[in-house]
């Protein structure tokens, strides 16, 4: 158990430093954790993303708390949440203390011209991986012929058309998915 606490701490320390660009940037790291340690299933992780979106607070903290809790209970949740903010906490204090402000961050902005597309690409690969897992239910993956889940494709199309036109509203999208799921599965 102590080993799990230690691993959780190290992994979330890393996520705190390297997950750049909002709460969703933590997702590629969490899926990587899933593939490395099997602390939770991909389905559980997807449920966690949904819950993190409908509860108050930064999505990154929600995800850390939830994955920590699923992995190792209350102490796991506490360790993951503290670890993810620990290094940024000291970096922010140092920057505010030394510079009072970061002069429009022009000095480090050019690093971000490359980091933002990289972060976006990581998330894109997770998006396609999840789509594949939701629509095709072959176990193991990539065995042919592919078994397609028609219900999932129908729900995906029904949801993506209206929601690509209106302003992003996570709660509404998740609610629509829940109702759609109940309806389609009982058809």
């Amino acid at each position: 158990m102590v080993k799990i606490y230690f691993l959780l701490f190290i992994e979330f320390l890393k996520i705190g430093v390297f997950a750049l660009g909002g709460g969703y940037a933590t997702l590629p790291f969490l899926y990587y954790l899933q593939s490395q340690y099997n602390w939770f299933s991909t389905d559980e992780l997807t449920n966690m993303i949904a819950v993190s979106n409908i509860t108050p607070g930064p999505v990154g903290i929600n995800m850390a708390t939830y994955t920590g809790y699923t992995t190792a209970g209350f102490w796991g949740a506490l360790i993951a949440s503290v670890a993810i903010i620990l290094i940024p906490f000291f970096i922010v204090i140092t920057v505010v203390k030394l510079f009072n402000k970061l002069s429009n961050c022009n000095n480090i902005n050019y690093i971000f011209t490359g980091l933002r597309p990289a972060s976006c690409a990581l998330l894109t690969s997770i998006g396609f991986k999840l789509l594949f897992q939701a629509v095709v239910y072959n176990k193991p993956e990539w065995s042919f012929p592919l078994q397609i889940d028609l219900k999932a494709i129908i729900l995906f199309i029904i949801l993506i058309i209206p929601f690509s036109f209106i302003k992003k509203n996570p709660i509404l999208i998740i609610l629509a998915g829940a109702l759609g799921g109940i309806f389609i599965q009982n058809f």
Partner: peptide, 10 residues
Amino acid sequence: GIRISVIILI
């Protein structure tokens, strides 16, 4: 159904 919602959010 929410799994599909999450993919759309992503």
